[in-house]
Nucleic acid binder design. Structure first.
Lengths: 193, 193
DNA sequence: ACCTGAACACCGTTCAAGT
DNA sequence: ACCTGAACACCGTTCAAGT
C-alpha cells in the first residue's frame, strides 16, 4: 500500500495502535511489518514518540477532511450539531486514534502541532458560523468552541471507560450529551423565538 | 510508611505513576522500592494492571473524601460549582492519577468498579441537591451530572494536552469552561428570576 | 502464606558496518 | 542516504525452591 518506507512504517504503526494502543506499537514489530530491520525506523523517526506523532498528525488531517464533508454540501448547510455528532462517531469508532491525538507529549512535535492548530481553526470557524445563523448564543467563538469540544471529548472518554452508554440504550450516550448541551445553549440566545 | 507489603507496593506504584505515567510503573522497580524481590508483587496482584487498578481505587476514594469536605460544612452549603472546581483542581494537580482513574481497562476490576460507582453516586446526589436549590434546571440528575462531568473531564484533558490554558492567563481555563456551563444552565431554569 | 532468584521471551535504542 | 545485525540495558511474567 505504501510507496516508501516512511509511509509503510506509519501504516504499520496505525494498524498496531488500533489493536492494542501505544503499548502494542513496538518499533520492532513496525519494522517487521514494513519489511525492514529493527534499526531501520530510526532513520525515519527520532524515536517511538515521533512515529506516534506522525500517526496522530495523519489521522487528524484525515478527520479534518471527513468533517469538512459534513459542512461542505451547498456551503450553507452548516449544522454544527451534525459536525459534532460526526466527530463523536469518529472518536467512538477509533478510540486509540482519538486518545493518541489528545495525548500529552513529552515535547513539542512540529507536524502534529500544526495539524492540531488547523483542526482547531476549523472548529472555531464552524462555531462562529453557527453563531451567525443563530444556532448558538453570542460569545467568544474560541471559548464557546472549547466548551463544545471539551464536552464532546469528555463524553467520549466517559463512554470509552464504560461510565456512559456508547449507543444510548438505557443510559445517556455521548450524542445525547451533545444534544443536551446544544439545547441549553439555544435558550439564552436573544431574539430567536 | 506502609505497614504491610501490599500497601508498600501500592505506595511505590503511585509514586512512580506521578513521575512518568503507567509506563514508568515497572513491577521490578515497584518491588525494589518496596524492599522485596521482583517476583514478590505477583503474590499480591495478578499483574501490572491489577496493581494500577488498586492505585486508581485508592485515589478515587481519597478524592471522594476531599470532595465531601467541600459540600460538608454546615450540611447545607452545597455549591456544586465549588465542588466541580475542586475536582478540576485535583485533576490538574495529579494528571496521571486523573488519567488512570478514567483509563480503559482490559477487564472489569472489582475494587475499582465499586469505588467508581460510589464516586458517581456522590456526584449525582450533589447534582440533585443543586437542582433542588435552584442552581440547576430540572432534568434527569443522572444525565445532568454526566454532562457536568464530561465537560470537566474534557476541559481538563484539553488543558493537559496544551490545547487550553491551565490557569486562565490569556486563553480559557477548565475552570472558566465550568463557569460558562453553569451560566448557560442557569438561564433555562423557570421561576428563578 | 510469603518470598527469592533464575529463566524466558520480549522491549527501545545505539552503533559499527555494509550498499 | 538508507539499511542490517549485533549489542546493551531494560521489561512482564512464570516457576521451582526455600522459610
Amino acid at each position: 500500500m505504501a510507496t516508501n518506507t516512511r509511509d509503510a512504517l506509519i501504516d504499520a504503526a496505525a494498524r498496531l495502535l488500533d489493536t492494542g494502543g501505544p503499548v502494542a506499537v513496538t518499533l520492532r514489530e513496525v519494522g517487521r511489518q514494513a519489511g525492514v530491520s529493527r534499526g531501520a525506523p530510526y532513520k525515519h523517526f527520532a524515536d517511538k514518540e515521533a512515529l506516534l506523532a506522525a500517526v496522530a498528525a495523519r489521522e487528524l488531517a484525515a478527520l479534518g477532511t471527513q468533517l469538512s464533508e459534513v459542512t461542505a454540501p451547498g456551503g450553507r448547510h452548516n449544522d454544527l450539531r451534525a459536525l459534532m455528532h460526526r466527530y463523536v462517531a469518529w472518536a467512538l469508532a477509533h478510540p486509540e486514534r482519538f486518545r493518541l491525538v489528545f495525548a500529552a507529549w513529552s515535547r513539542p512535535l512540529e507536524e502534529l502541532g500544526s495539524a492540531a492548530n488547523s483542526a482547531r481553526a476549523r472548529l472555531v470557524e464552524a462555531t462562529a458560523a453557527a453563531q451567525r445563523s443563530g444556532q448558538l448564543p453570542a460569545a467568544d467563538p474560541e471559548r464557546l468552541s472549547a466548551l463544545l469540544q471539551a464536552l464532546a471529548n469528555g463524553a467520549v472518554e466517559l463512554a470509552l471507560a464504560g461510565h456512559l452508554s456508547p449507543d444510548g440504550k438505557g443510559r445517556a450516550s455521548p450524542d445525547d450529551l451533545v444534544d443536551d448541551l446544544f439545547g441549553y445553549l439555544r435558550a439564552p440566545a436573544a431574539g430567536t423565538q
